[in-house]
Amino acid sequence: MPDVVQWESYFDSDEIVHKLSDPGRRRRCVEFGCGFGTFTRAAASLVDVKQIASFDIDDDMIRTTQMRLSDETSAEVFLTRRDFLADGCGLPDGWADWAMIFNLLHIESPSVLLAEAHRVIRRGGTLALIHWRDDVATPRGPSMNIRPSLTQCQAWAEQVGFQFASTPVLEGSPWHWGLRMTRLDAETRRDSEEPQV
């Protein structure tokens, strides 16, 4: 990882959390991988966000994020060191209104993480995804040969029960794509799976 200032020059975190969430329906957020707290802080600055549960496997990232959180935010932020790929996030089913999975879906088993997000997001809730683009050279990011495309991530998310919502243009984050998905409820999912005549 580069230093914080360099890392945060690659994103407009405020634009990302605004465009990939649903105002008025984002009271509780779960974040898979807090890193430096870039998006934790941006989400906590949204006035209608009241609770954020954020997880990372790295103690240093948890400490860094804790130090960077402002006392001025009204959101309660719970930071936990946890291997959420191996052990899940530990939150109750349907706890979150939205989840953030940013720059992670190049992992070996993306469907495991997406299934855990599906479990913890309430019906009708939002899944927010970003990743480094795979069609242009970027200043950071994983090797191009392991970067998933937006289309691939959408397909993975649909396989575990999400529905496409939007792909907003991220003007302040030119090296990333953004994808917003909605967690289907059981009835909607059955309807969508019925064969079309």
Results as ranks from 00 to 15, higher is better:
residue 95 W to F: 07
residue 70 S to K: 06
residue 45 S to T: 05
residue 78 F to R: 15
residue 91 L to D: 07
residue 66 Q to E: 15
residue 64 T to P: 02
residue 82 R to I: 01
residue 88 G to R: 05
residue 64 T to E: 14
residue 102 F to E: 00
residue 73 T to G: 11
residue 67 M to T: 07
residue 49 V to N: 11
residue 46 L to M: 14
residue 54 S to R: 07
residue 49 V to W: 04
residue 72 E to N: 12
residue 61 M to R: 14
residue 81 R to D: 06
residue 51 Q to E: 15
residue 106 H to T: 05
residue 45 S to R: 15
residue 95 W to E: 09
residue 79 L to T: 08
residue 91 L to M: 12
residue 96 A to I: 02
residue 85 L to R: 05
residue 80 T to S: 11
residue 107 I to S: 03
residue 103 N to A: 08
residue 101 I to F: 02
residue 80 T to M: 08
residue 53 A to C: 14
residue 94 G to V: 05
residue 55 F to A: 08
residue 89 C to Y: 00
residue 59 D to T: 10
residue 58 D to W: 02
residue 51 Q to L: 07
residue 62 I to P: 10
residue 103 N to G: 04
residue 54 S to F: 01
residue 84 F to V: 06
residue 52 I to D: 12
residue 90 G to V: 06
residue 74 S to M: 09
residue 49 V to D: 08
residue 85 L to Y: 00
residue 69 L to G: 11
residue 54 S to A: 15
residue 85 L to M: 11
residue 54 S to P: 07
residue 80 T to W: 00
residue 86 A to N: 08
residue 77 V to L: 11
residue 62 I to E: 08
residue 72 E to K: 12
residue 106 H to V: 05
residue 70 S to V: 03
residue 95 W to A: 09
residue 93 D to L: 12
residue 58 D to L: 08
residue 52 I to Q: 13
residue 60 D to G: 10
residue 91 L to H: 06
residue 92 P to I: 02
residue 94 G to R: 11
residue 90 G to P: 09
residue 73 T to L: 07
residue 55 F to S: 08
residue 56 D to S: 10
residue 60 D to F: 02
residue 97 D to W: 02
residue 51 Q to G: 06
residue 51 Q to M: 08
residue 77 V to N: 13
residue 53 A to H: 14
residue 68 R to S: 15
residue 83 D to M: 06
residue 76 E to W: 02
residue 52 I to N: 12
residue 96 A to P: 04
residue 75 A to L: 10
residue 64 T to A: 15
residue 61 M to I: 03
residue 100 M to G: 06
residue 100 M to L: 14
residue 62 I to K: 10
residue 64 T to R: 14
residue 52 I to R: 13
residue 93 D to M: 10
residue 92 P to C: 06
residue 79 L to P: 08
residue 53 A to W: 07
residue 84 F to W: 01
residue 72 E to S: 13
residue 56 D to A: 09
residue 68 R to C: 07
residue 100 M to S: 05
